[in-house]
Amino acid sequence: MQMKPYRIGTRGSPLALAQAHETRSRLMAAHALAEDAFEIVVLSTKGDRITDRPLAEIGGKGLFTEELEEQLSDGRLDLAVHSSKDMPTALPDGLGLVTFLEREDVRDAFIGRAAPRLETLPQNAVVGSSSLRRQALIRRLRPDLKVITFRGQVETRLRKLEEGVADATLLAHAGLKRLGNTGVITELLDPDSFPPAPGQGAICIEARTNDERIAELLAPINHADTQAALSCERAFLGALDGSCRTPIAGLATISEGQLSFFGMILTPDGTVWHDIRADGPVSDAAQVGADAGAEVRGRAGSSFFDSWT
């Protein structure tokens, strides 16, 4: 009897499709399955359809997941593939991030038209970005620059840059690598001075938490160190809000069973920031992140967060 194919949900952007295809390839290899054992189901999300306003104005990260999660919950999808940095910390009941593929490069890529490096851009140059974190970090390092909201798929943003809408933009290095488009990069930014978004560079898979069949399917492609690092980073996010309305950076790295975390929160204008470093065993990853979030929140004081509303 022919089994129905596993249904993999994804957004329709070229990057989202590349991530879904990578997931399918890994599952095919892990289980010696043919391509027709999987069906990639493309859904349009509200976040994809509304591109003329900042995410913070229209609802934040959940706008890229709502349609996928609805079909996961009712069984029309078996799993959904996401960019981890796009995922809210609170997920619908019965759903969870159950698998993480091995993380790619976490760095932000600078793509300069007027100059090859962020620090060498001319005074008052225009930089386009849709990320509040990137906007705040740019303003922190170069308060003279004009930062504008720059939304759309990777290809759209690169086209806008060529058309002269901005003098430079920033994109995730991992995404450009997955699209085979690293040739546009003019500088890779140091995570110590320009820390990435929590989850940046990691593909995650969302599924029903009580579906043992799908859990068994996904188990062989889970990367334990990436899962632990993301557990720490997402706990940091959870302690600090974690929506698209907040400039938050965070990166956990793992070596020989020990986890090191670096996190930062900023005001949107980049003039005030608080950073934190924390360490602990990998087994305590989530607690390290949560404690770091609580500490930096207490250090910043309640008035700091007024600028986030």
Rank of each mutant, 00 (worst) to 15 (best):
R159S: 14
R159I: 15
K160E: 14
K160C: 07
L161P: 12
E162S: 14
E163Y: 07
G164H: 12
V165W: 15
V165Q: 14
V165C: 11
A166Y: 11
D167Q: 08
A168I: 13
T169Q: 13
T169V: 08
A172I: 01
A172W: 02
H173Y: 14
R178A: 10
G180Y: 01
G180P: 10
G180L: 13
N181S: 15
N181C: 12
N181E: 07
T182M: 05
T182G: 01
T182A: 14
G183Y: 00
G183H: 09
G183R: 04
V184C: 09
V184Q: 13
I185C: 05
I185T: 04
E187F: 01
E187G: 03
D190I: 09
D190N: 15
D192G: 12
D192E: 11
S193F: 04
S193Y: 06
S193K: 10
F194A: 12
P198H: 09
G199Y: 00
Q200L: 08
Q200D: 13
A202F: 00
I203R: 02
C204Q: 06
I205A: 07
I205D: 09
R208A: 14
T209G: 01
T209F: 00
N210P: 00
N210F: 02
N210W: 10
D211P: 05
E212H: 10
I214R: 10
I214N: 15
A215P: 03
E216K: 07
L217W: 06
L217A: 09
L217T: 12
L217H: 06
L218W: 10
L218H: 06
L218K: 07
A219I: 09
A219D: 06
A219Y: 05
P220D: 09
I221G: 13
I221L: 03
N222W: 10
N222R: 11
H223R: 02
A224G: 05
A224D: 10
A224I: 05
D225K: 06
T226Q: 06
T226S: 11
A228F: 04
A228N: 08
S231E: 13
C232L: 08
C232V: 05
E233K: 01
R234K: 08
R234W: 04
R234L: 09
A235M: 11
A235S: 14
G238C: 12
G238D: 08
L240Y: 05
T246S: 15
T246N: 06
P247V: 09
I248P: 12
A249H: 09
A249F: 03
A249R: 02
A249V: 04
